[in-house]
Design a protein around this nucleic acid. Structure first.
Lengths: 401, 401
DNA sequence: ACATTTAAGTCAAGCCATTTGACTTAATAG
DNA sequence: CTATTAAGTCAAATGGCTTGACTTAAATGT
């Protein structure tokens, strides 16, 4: 009998796992394709019409799907398409960035239904988490006022903040996020809200947002480059988010790049932080962001100067992730002022030739994100939704007793 | 009704999927932990004792597991551990490299049971594939002579060759692999052998080998750097092999690295090909390999010179994959002469500090592979075994009718 | 018009893998 | 030598998917 040495093994599954998987498959199919009839779903999922009927009945009873108007026009009995019910589930998300925090609520479709933004106090995570709990309460009340049912339909709380996680504080930590990373944030927020709480880095959250309602809709292999104070990549690999063994996958900001003979992390030259530094702006002020926007629109030479160098590094970063991940597409997303993001995107062309130049491509090699500055917060919020409703391998497995 | 536009959806599952998954989970548990009793398996997989008994009975009938001697020594009824039966399944693998080809047969444990190696004829894939079919036939006969039952227990044929796949031939193709890549190799070998045939790149195959019987045993997140004529990375992400959207993931040899102000693909400076070039050896001769081994053992200054530069690039490559993938460990494997591989490995220390320097590490950041020069062939052969017996998400899904 | 064809969706019985709970077996501990 | 602990079996029950026949309802074609 092995009880001291823990046995390494995957968990088995049973009929509950089967049914859980099939429910998720139905939900995802409708999410990706729009309203579908039972017959459509049966064909697409390879389940029988009867099974689909049972699942639809149960999903409808749970308020997750609803029928639309009967569709005529083809031979045979007219079909009844089913759509997702946005109010079928809700979820909360928190973005913690260097100087501000955003809290949003989203519905089953990942669409924003409530939001708050606030500056983070200087007091660090002890103070900050109290503030955040207050903001969550505000959003929750707002949500409850508009959707009274939402109280029983909260999938959880997703938190996103800059990584990397679990490392000893480095002397390179100019943004003082280290104290946040050593703070028991998930535990504090879980205790304070009573919600199932999960944590991911901002780039991963951004990828989730782009996948839910953006440029990565329905893609199984995509890299989402998040350009903000720092820079990172959110990874969608094989249809699922990939976060590595310690949730630090995709930290491309720390990859060493060479320019002009010197080697330094990408983040030191291609990030908002690097731009602030280049411009001599104090990133602690809220004006820095607006200043950048203004200077960009004015074609300030210092911006153009920085852009040239940043774009060169970004081209290389795109080449690197294409070569390493072989994705269907790369998405440039982030929280930079929109005009700057647009300029940077444009300055990145022409891209460096890579393995991604295939004759059979259907998507552009590089796309710009579609979600906007709230992407990270929305992605954080969408994470519990996806975990609860997406077909995942882990979802079929039996849980600990 | 949607019949023209194909509906994007995952497949559903049913009881067969459940049982298929549970069988695989049992097999994997025994593979990872060594012989286990039914009670152990029930605890580890969270299935009931009865279910495990049913599965074991079926697996035993299929000749995949067998009981060992009863274990006494603890309270209660003595337990009967079950082990995998190596002869329960076999599989064939082909490695195609620039100038040679290896064919092996492996058993359920991934251990070699037959092998052949031959030089590839100059005639290209049309000639070459005929030769390979002949070698496969030889190995098959050898296998059948030793294990008459193996005829009915062949899981398939795995093929491994250098990537990238599906790209227009580049002018950089100094090894003339392009004609192989445009040749319908899988179809030819499948038709010629009647076996289910699959293709992967050499680095991926190497990772499979290290996972089956090497340094990556049981790891869910590992990067296997394959150092051969070229250089690539095999990716084990989230417990499964990751190959990207076009089987080209991990082609780190094509990532651009800077050294001394110039930028070039890693492969141009860190690969056997680069060493041959550095030494002025003709890589088309079989002696080149032996020459390198001899020169390495003689501490030839040109080798030491090359080593210094290559090690610098490799350090950077390790830093890059650690930062991007957040793996549990990185494995240096490949088909270089053993003394050279060892020297290179040693010259890579000290590693560049990275996110992988965690206080909670249990594995070394960089390990050397344990499989040896036949790693790619063995990995190619192991692939059908793993696909048939490992717990995979895809294995629970219903197949096309 | 009206029969034919086509397709959506339901019904009820059946199937199959897991579960349940009681039971048997067989060892060690005291 | 009894109590305890644990492995493993037995037989019935459960639950989710499947099967095949059936109903409903529209478009098509003569």
């Amino acid at each position: 009998m092995h009880d001291l040495r823990t046995i390494r093994a995957k968990s088995g599954t049973n009929q509950e796992g089967t049914s859980a998987h099939n429910r998720r498959v139905v939900i995802e199919a409708i999410r990706l394709n729009g309203p579908l009839s039972r017959a459509d779903l049966a064909r697409a999922t390879r389940l029988t019409k009867q099974t689909i009927s049972n699942l639809i009945e149960s999903l409808e009873a749970d308020g997750l799907v609803a029928s639309e108007d009967v569709v005529r026009g083809a031979r045979g009995q007219p079909s009844t398409p089913y759509r997702l019910v946005p109010e079928g589930a809700f979820s909360l998300g928190v973005q913690i960035d260097r100087h501000l925090t955003r809290v949003v609520a989203v519905d089953l479709m990942g669409r924003e239904v409530a939001r708050v933004v606030a500056n983070l106090p200087a007091g660090g995570p002890a103070e900050g988490s109290k503030l955040i709990l207050g903001l969550i309460e505000t959003v929750r009340r707002d949500l409850a006022a508009r959707f009274p049912d939402s109280v029983h339909r909260l999938a959880g709380l997703g938190v996103a903040m800059p990584g990397p996680f679990g490392l000893p504080p480095s002397d390179d930590d100019t943004w003082m996020m280290a104290q946040w990373q050593s703070f028991p944030l998930v535990e504090t927020l879980a205790a304070g809200t009573g919600l199932a709480t999960s944590l991911q880095n901002d780039a991963t959250a951004c990828a989730t947002a782009e996948r839910m309602n953006g440029s990565a809709d329905g893609l199984d292999h995509a890299v989402c480059i998040y350009f903000g104070y720092g820079i990172g990549a959110g990874l969608i690999l094989g249809g699922e988010l990939y976060t590595g063994s310690n949730r630090n996958a995709g930290e491309i900001g720390m990859v060493l790049f060479s320019r002009g003979g010197t080697q330094s992390p990408l983040e030191h030259r291609s990030s908002l932080a690097s731009l602030f530094q280049h411009l001599g702006l104090d990133s602690a002020t809220t004006e820095a962001y607006a200043d950048v926007e203004r200077l960009t629109l004015a074609d300030d030479p210092r911006i153009l100067d920085w852009l040239e160098g940043a774009a060169a590094d970004m081209r290389q970063a795109v080449h690197m992730v294409e070569t390493i991940f072989d994705p269907q597409t790369v998405i440039l997303s982030g929280s930079a002022p929109e005009p700057l993001a647009k300029r940077l995107f444009e300055a990145m062309f022409p891209l460096i030739p890579s393995n991604a130049d295939r004759p059979d491509r259907s998507l552009p090699r590089l796309q710009i994100g579609m979600v906007g500055p709230w992407a990270v917060a929305l992605g954080a919020a969408a994470e519990p939704i996806r975990r609860a409703f997406d077909p995942l391998f882990s979802a079929i497995l039996k849980e600990a007793p």
